[in-house]
Nucleic acid binder design. Structure first.
Lengths: 347, 347
DNA sequence: ATAGCATTTGACAACGTTGTCATTGTATCA
DNA sequence: TGATACAATGACAACGTTGTCAAATGCTAT
């Protein structure tokens, strides 16, 4: 390939117009498929477009257009590489692509400052709307953007924003069901391991845990509660500590997918995986290939994402009905680990 | 909150200027931290910015700016929800965020048509560059964009593009090592299960398989080769078929992470997981919690992503050295499944 | 006091596109 | 034939910003 092929700048409509021997506006009309261009000129323009490999500059177009739509949305996740987040992402992308919309994805790492940076970077690029798994309970920036009229949909977690659209699962009911299920298998000493307590989901699941214990008539023992566990390593460590304590739990409720994995690691390492019951919140790949197979409170991340995206696009298409708080159910999947009886026997 | 708070349009520099009682250009100078604005005016402008919650419109800015940079890059993945892809994504995002750059992520689903759509959508939004896991061997659109002077970095897979930057792992060596390792444990009937044969990685890993067999002096038996296996279900099915055939393999080399999982499912379902050896290409979460623990040829997706992103940003910062083809090593992690001897005994 | 200079400020054009409106050409009608 | 309607086309301004350049200001040196 010779250097002659190397063009330094992208061609513009003006150049297409010059080549086709028509006015700028006629090219614009052809590109936007507006009516009222003779087939002869249209043909000439299309040839010129092909010849120059012209591609419209949508940023210039967005600037001028009346509707101010950029066909771009922002997605704020905890971490794009978290399996749960990435399933959400995919579902949202699929809906977006049906609306010919591109998705900016960003990882806040549950850091409110980074979240704010991302919101600013996205709104500066004039995204049409935002879907967010909020890092903090109160995001000033999101709040403000929403007030500016930019559609914002919260997914998975709630933030304390006045009347916002949201799609979440019933975390409390899920947590309650997990504890109730363990209690029904005879467990009285059920430990709770949860994510950073400031996260809405972690807090709700903890409330579910408390509720479940109450329902089962079990007194809450604070020594069995471990909050602010945030990754596999700390989860493993926390479980090892619990197992080493004198008042050891007979069952674990791990309230997040990475915590569940850390707990399994700890159980396997100590050879206790068949003695201690375990229910995790959130399903994960391979859960049914482990030994014992892992019982979980499953959510449907794809459905969460799809619902959130559909809600956002409805807003973008002019739906001005009051904000919706959609709550999806969870489902207990009993695979074995949650059905271990006290003392380590399977039913 | 009253409706008075609802503003319909974003404030512009002009409005900030009016409020601060200065010219448009002075506001621009303050926003861009150009030298030569008196502290008094600067102060007044900053107050106005705060008061109006002004945020610069980067799309307008990009249009006018000389460098034509949008601080946006495009990332084309197979599937954002694939664990390997999402780890790549995260690593790239981390590098991008250091360059104050946002990432458009898209899933091609290994469909060249969808890939082309995404490339067009991204370049229409004038991304500064592209990082891509190419869906097809020859992407006309990517080829063209590259010729236009838009930096393109290929990652994980190669495409037949003249002299492009790329970051891949040594798939052939990895495949060869897997087969050699299995042969060293006495296996003669080693099956190959690979992704769509048109994918560069799948083809390379197959070549590694062939090479490994040759090295071990084993004749290739086409009945042990299953190509175009693309997801968990088809992989499980393919392994079930292999296990049911008269000339059953004693070891499996599964050349992609989802195929590995499907194979494990099939082995567990038939209770053969301790008789048939298995090495998978690509490590995955929980591989060392399964029974048997799964031996793999591991790549480092984060390092792949980081390297690719650093290469892209070097190009964007004006590095005009000849295209680089960076090849990273793989690593065999022996955990158990790959060390099962013929007949099902562990060494 | 005046020339000379540096500093601060703003007027204006331009980026690539679309919205508005005027102009041209052609066909239709009384 | 002339008036009218309609379709096709283009000239021009505008979107929100930055680059260029000129003007205004304040200072120093003569």
């Amino acid at each position: 390939m010779s250097n002659a092929n190397l063009i330094s700048r992208e061609p513009t409509m003006r150049e297409v117009a010059a080549l086709a021997g028509v006015s700028l506006k006629t090219v614009s009309r052809v590109i936007n498929q507006e009516a009222g261009v003779s087939s002869e000129l249209s043909e000439r323009v299309q040839n010129a477009v092909r010849q120059l490999h012209y591609q419209p500059n949508t940023t210039a177009s967005n600037l001028r257009r009346a509707d101010q739509r950029t066909a771009t949305i922002g997605l704020l996740l905890d971490d794009v590489s978290n399996p749960f987040s990435s399933l959400l992402h995919r579902a949202i992308e699929d809906v977006a692509s049906q609306h010919r919309t591109l998705v900016f994805a960003g990882s806040s790492g549950d850091d409110p400052k980074r979240e704010q940076e991302l919101v600013l970077a996205m709104t500066a690029r004039r995204v049409d709307g935002l879907i967010t798994v909020p890092a903090s309970r109160a995001s000033g920036e999101l709040n403000h953007r929403q007030r500016l009229g930019k559609p914002v949909v919260f997914v998975d977690r709630l933030a304390t924003i006045h009347a916002a659209d949201s799609v979440t699962v019933d975390n409390r009911a899920g947590g309650c069901a997990a504890v109730w299920h363990l209690a029904a298998h005879g467990h009285q000493r059920i430990a709770f391991l949860g994510d950073i307590h400031d996260l809405w989901t972690a807090a709700e699941r903890y409330l579910g845990y408390v509720e479940g214990l109450a329902l089962a008539g079990i007194r809450l023992d604070p020594s069995l509660v471990r909050q602010d566990v945030h990754n596999i390593e700390t989860a493993e460590q926390a479980v090892l500590e619990l197992l080493a304590s004198e008042q050891m739990p007979s069952a674990l409720f791990t309230a997040q997918n990475l915590i569940t994995i850390g707990a399994i690691q700890a159980l396997q390492r100590t050879g206790r995986q068949h003695q201690i019951a375990l229910i995790g919140f959130d399903d994960f790949l391979l859960a049914d290939l482990l030994d014992p197979r892992v019982s979980v409170i499953a959510q449907d991340p794809a459905r969460l994402g799809r619902t959130a995206a559909e809600l956002l696009f409805a807003r973008l298409d002019g739906d001005h009905t009051p904000p919706q708080q959609i709550v999806l159910p969870t489902r207990l999947i009993a695979r074995g680990s949650g059905e271990i009886l006290v003392g380590g026997k399977l039913r």
